[in-house]
Simulated assay, not measured.
Amino acid sequence: MAVLSPTQPAAAPPQEPAAPPPGGRGQADLRFVLPGAALTLLAVLLLGFAANLTVLGHIEHARAQQSGYDQLRSELAQGTAPVGRLDMNGKEVPSGSPVAVLHIPALKLREVVFQGTTSGVLTKGPGHLRNTPLPGQPGTSTILGRQWGYGSPFNHLDELKAGDPITVTTGQGQQHYQVTGIRRAGDPAPAALQNGQGRLTLITATGGAYTPHGVLRVDATLVGTAQPAPAAGGLISTAERPLEGDPSAWLPVMLWLQALLIVVVAATWAFRRWGRWQTWIAGVPVLVAIVVALSGAATELLPNLL
C-alpha cells in the first residue's frame, strides 16, 4: 500500500456539478414562453371564432328561434304582436323583437323573423328591414337572412322557383305570397307596385361558404287583399343594410379582450404560485367562456348576410 509523504498534498474532495452558465438551456427556454403563449392564445381565439360561426352559432340560433317563437305566440294570443314600426304604446319596436313567422314549404323552412337587420339580430334568424312595411301590408316588405352562419336559414334561397308559395304569419294573420323571380347583381328590378299591392323581397348573400361577395333577392307577390298599414319608412343605420357589419360591436370586443388579458395574467400567477393542475382546473372554464363571448362579439363585425 502506498504511503503519502509529508510533502505530498492530500486528494481534493469531490466537487458538485457546476450550475448551468447564464444563457444556458434554462434561460433559453424562457425566450419561447411568451411567443408560445401568444400563438396558443391566437389559435384558441381562431378556433372560438370558427366555432361561433358553425357549431355554437347554430345552437345559439336554435335557442333564439325557440324563445322568439314562444314570445310571438304569446303576443299573437293576446293581440299585442307588432303590426308596424311602433308598438301599442307608440314606442319603436325594440331591435331583436319577434315580429313574424316565415314559412317556405319548398325549402322546408319555418323561421321566426325579428325586427332589425344588424349582424347581431341576424344571429337569431331572418330580420325585417325596419324602414319597410310588415309582410301583408301595401308596399315592399324586405326580410334579410344569413346564407351560412347561425343556422344558415337562407342558404337554399336560390332554389326557389316562380309560383312557389310563401306564408308569413304576423299580428294581422296569415299573409300569402307567390314567388315571381330571383334577382342577382345586374338583373332588372320588378315593375313598380300599384296602389294597394304588396310584395315580399327576401335577401341573402351570394358566394362560397362564408365568403359573401354579392346579394341575392327573391321577389314574391302578395296574394289577396293587403292589410291596413301604419306609416312606414324612417331612417336605418348603415349596419342594417345588406352585407354590412356592426361597428358598435367594437365596444364589447374591447371589453372582452380586457377580460381575457386579466384572466391570462391571473392564470400565469396561479401557475407559478398555486400549481399546474389547480390552475388548469380553475382557469380553463373561465378562459373558454371568455373566448366564446369574445369571438361571438367579433362575428358581429362581419357582414350581416354571412
Rank of each mutant, 00 (worst) to 15 (best):
V112P: 09
Q137D: 05
V121R: 09
E300T: 12
R25C: 06
G57D: 08
L56C: 07
G283A: 09
A11F: 02
H128C: 00
L4G: 10
G283L: 00
G296V: 09
I182M: 03
T206N: 06
N89W: 07
G23Q: 08
L102I: 04
A259R: 06
L72M: 05
G173F: 01
Q197T: 08
G181L: 00
L30D: 12
T211W: 07
R199I: 03
Q71A: 15
K161L: 10
G173H: 04
D219P: 03
P303F: 04
T142E: 03
G90S: 13
A192I: 03
G173Y: 02
E300I: 11
R272A: 10
V168W: 10
L287G: 02
L243P: 02
L47V: 14
G198F: 05
V101P: 13
P6G: 07
Q172E: 11
V265N: 05
P228V: 01
T204Q: 02
F114P: 07
R25V: 12
G275R: 00
V253F: 09
R85V: 11
Q115R: 13
A229H: 06
T180I: 14
H58Q: 09
L109G: 03
R31F: 09
V218T: 02
G283P: 04
G234T: 07
V288A: 12
R183P: 01
A106V: 10
Y69E: 15
I143C: 01
R73V: 08
A162T: 13
L260C: 10
P165G: 04
E159R: 15
G57V: 08
V284R: 01
P35Y: 04
T132E: 01
R276A: 03
A239N: 01
T140P: 06
T54N: 11
L193R: 09
Q194N: 14
A298Q: 05
K108L: 08
P190K: 00
V284S: 03
A226V: 08
H103F: 08
H58T: 12
V218I: 05
L157H: 10
H213A: 04
S248C: 01
L216M: 07
P17S: 00
G207R: 05
V83M: 07
P165L: 00
L34P: 05
I104C: 13
V101W: 08
K161F: 06
H156D: 13
G283S: 06
G151N: 10
V292E: 05
N131E: 10
